[in-house]
Design a binder for these strands. Structure first.
Lengths: 216, 216
DNA sequence: AAGCTTCTTGACTGGATGGTCAAACTTGAT
DNA sequence: ATCAAGTTTGACCATCCAGTCAAGAAGCTT
């Protein structure tokens, strides 16, 4: 009778992160990088393990040595993304200057579109599909945070420190405008010319827009 | 030797639309409706003919009696969509009142998000994937139209009739803000509460926003 | 009702795809 | 150098999926 040896993926099944060798850390990162590239453009079902394997420069069985399944890779990517997805909004400080705070939030979100466009598209893909895998996150974590910050903005408008606006739509508008530059980068690139940086001028435009919107 | 009979799909291969029977028109429409539902949420690769068949209440071979292939269904949907996708922007009239015209454009786009959210998501899916099937449309038709209307807006700002703004980013912002309500409807619904209409208050907010942005 | 055309579908095929496994190879500690 | 653990992969399997086909059912026309 053969005793199957445990794979790293199995060992990592427990809640706490187990110790990983240098090779394991390196290859898991390579795989996640490749998977992010593939999942973010083709979606979960549209992506194949073979594509990811080629992108990662590893064999398909090797992928499954480091992760239990295609789904596990995807889950790991989403988990890591959601961990930081809330940060920009979380940093919005009720004690700061309203205009400065909102402007800084917009700038942080735009920076995320610049630095992590693939993560943004991964998230967009999930929402387009009805958010089946992130429903809990949105209904609980995201919703609570948005409700909280909406109250902050509401207090600012009530105090006359910024112009009256619906705080929810204000937040949605920042999401829409900043994420558009990551999610629709292909379209923007084709319209503005391919040499052009899609985000060129975006920050100035958004700064101008929100300055005018918020001025009391 | 058996002589294969022509199917409707084959007959419709030519450029001009062939005459179709009552049943053909009805079933093709049913299939396109079902396919729009499935493609818009799962993307091209994520959708299966079986899903579409179930949604349409037809058998899978029956689908392929009316359309040559999965790809042909998808192409037909995109073709019909692109035909009307440009209309709202095309209607922007260089001879009209600047603020009125831009506001009306924004309202038309928002109306499309309300009336055709699935079409919007179908398009979003295409762009997320790098726009492989609509690249020609974007590089030629859409780009020419945007360039044209950007010049119109530029003339308006040059004449001081509206505040100075980058015309391209102005157009992109209208796309981002209006399409967000269709493409991210799932997220908005989960945050605002499921009884809520995601578009509630959107028009008032956008009207307010663009009024402030454009005032000279 | 007969006879032709259009429409419908159960059963099937070939290729893609997620996942398995045992054997081989590599690494590192002694 | 040796050995055990960790790593890699060719070959394989089961399932899914787009697409085919031949035979039968439903509509039309006379």
């Amino acid at each position: 009778m053969s005793v199957p040896r445990a794979t790293p993926a199995e060992k990592s099944g427990s809640v706490k992160t187990p110790p990983r060798s240098r090779i394991q850390r390196r290859n898991r990162q390579i795989i996640l990088d490749a998977a992010l590239e593939v999942f973010s453009t083709h979606g979960f079902r549209g992506a194949t393990l073979d594509q990811i394997a080629v992108q990662a420069g590893l064999s398909k069985p090797n992928l499954l040595y480091y992760f239990d399944s295609k789904d596990a890779i995807h889950r790991e990517l989403l988990t890591r993304l959601l961990d930081t997805w809330l940060d920009p909004l979380r940093m919005l400080d009720a004690g700061g200057d309203p205009q400065t705070e909102i402007m800084a939030y917009m700038r942080r979100k735009l920076q995320m579109s610049r630095d992590f466009p693939r993560e943004s598209r991964l998230f967009a893909n999930e929402i387009l599909q009805g958010a089946p895998r992130v429903e809990g996150f949105i209904r609980n974590d995201l919703r609570a945070l948005v409700d909280d910050k909406a109250r902050v903005v509401q207090a600012w408008t009530d105090a006359g420190r910024i112009a009256k606006t619906d705080p929810y739509h204000l937040i949605f508008s920042i999401w829409a405008l900043t994420q558009h530059y990551a999610d629709f980068a292909a379209q923007i690139g084709m319209i503005r010319g391919d040499g052009h940086d899609p985000l060129d001028g975006a920050e100035a435009f958004l700064k101008h827009l929100y300055t005018r919107l918020l001025a009391p």
